[in-house]
Write a protein that binds this DNA or RNA. Structure first.
Lengths: 198, 198
DNA sequence: ATCTCTATTTTTAGTTC
DNA sequence: TGAACTAAAAATAGAGA
């Protein structure tokens, strides 16, 4: 019996910019989630720190679809300028906020752990003399990164408001609007072994 | 003829912290490079922006091996404190510098492109009215991120100097020293289509 | 640490539902 | 859109030099 193959399976592709907009969207979606999964796994497996920021935008047609869908879900009572504002806020900033909150919780946890380490050191463990500076360096770096992300988020918000404000004076040009999306992924420092801090 | 398998091939593993130090190192190495490759591919394929920071440290035994190897390659004429300084600088900061230079070149290119866009806009292309703010937002964010990275690099350097200085007064404790490595990967903004900027 | 090698697992391109 | 499917491509665990 001859078995007809149902699909051609995964095809080899060159790593060059995808020109077909449809393919690009699908590939972005798949590889984007794949990348975050890999990053997450690296963190978990090796206890390393990974900060990953992916920024992208959608082409106008799919943007319209998203906005349309959002509008159809929103009560009509909200006035239209507010509606657009909220739509963009939700689409662009909500996820960012969520991720950032998680990230900040990680930082808090690490900060506490850093303090504990500091206290332990005061007890007189000379064995740990090299750990503390690196620990602190690490925290410092992470906090700077965190601050940069906060700043970035602030800018996203204010720029979005600006854009949407301009836009509200110009309804009908929706196709030219570019929603902006940012995903964040952050994992904190961790011990590799009781005597090697990270 | 019975074919004896040479290896068991890839084995399924749970995504939990690897406790065996040796396995951890190898896995980190493999997955670290795999992650950067994936990030690079996502950028190229979809023209998205990705910033990836991976920070990790080595356990003491392999650290000794690295330092030993470095020392055996270095002319004996250099005095030992300088030697250690240089060793750590090379190991920890060189790659960072290289990556950062590439990153900065990308930023420069993008900044120029942003200016060109600005000039074009002044010519009177109303069609592009939404592109510029997002372009600028993007650049601004990227520059902030870049600044954060520069700051981070500065801290790595100064902390390393501090650690190495302390260490040079305390030879014989090499096993407690934790080299610190940071890899950076950054890709710039790009057009998705002539009318959608990123 | 890296590189190699192999046999698997995992990811994903293309398609269909 | 978007989730599910398939089969091929790609990544990688384990072992080695």
């Amino acid at each position: 019996m001859v078995h007809e193959k149902k699909t051609r399976g995964r095809q080899k592709i060159d790593i060059v910019k995808i020109e077909n907009e449809q393919n690009l969207q699908v590939t972005f979606c798949k590889r984007h989630s794949g990348l975050f999964k890999k990053a997450s796994e690296l963190c978990t497996l090796t206890g390393s720190e990974v900060a990953l920021v992916v920024a992208y935008c959608f082409g106008s047609p799919s943007v319209n679809a998203i906005i349309d869908r959002f509008e159809s879900q929103t009560p009509k009572s909200i006035d239209s300028s507010n509606l657009l504002l909220e739509a963009h806020r939700k689409i662009n900033v909500q996820h960012l906020n969520n991720e950032l909150t998680i990230l900040q919780n990680h930082f808090e946890t690490e900060k506490k752990r850093g303090k504990t380490l500091n206290q332990q050191r005061k007890v007189g463990e000379t064995r740990h003399r090299w750990e503390a500076p690196i620990k602190e360096l690490n925290l410092e770096q992470l906090e700077q990164f965190n601050l940069a992300l906060l700043e970035l988020q602030k800018n996203v918000k204010s720029e979005l408001r600006k854009i949407i404000f301009e836009h509200s004076n110009q309804i009908g040009n929706l196709g030219q609007l570019n929603p902006y999306g940012i995903d964040l992924f952050g994992i904190n420092a961790r011990e590799i072994s009781p005597s090697v801090f990270y």
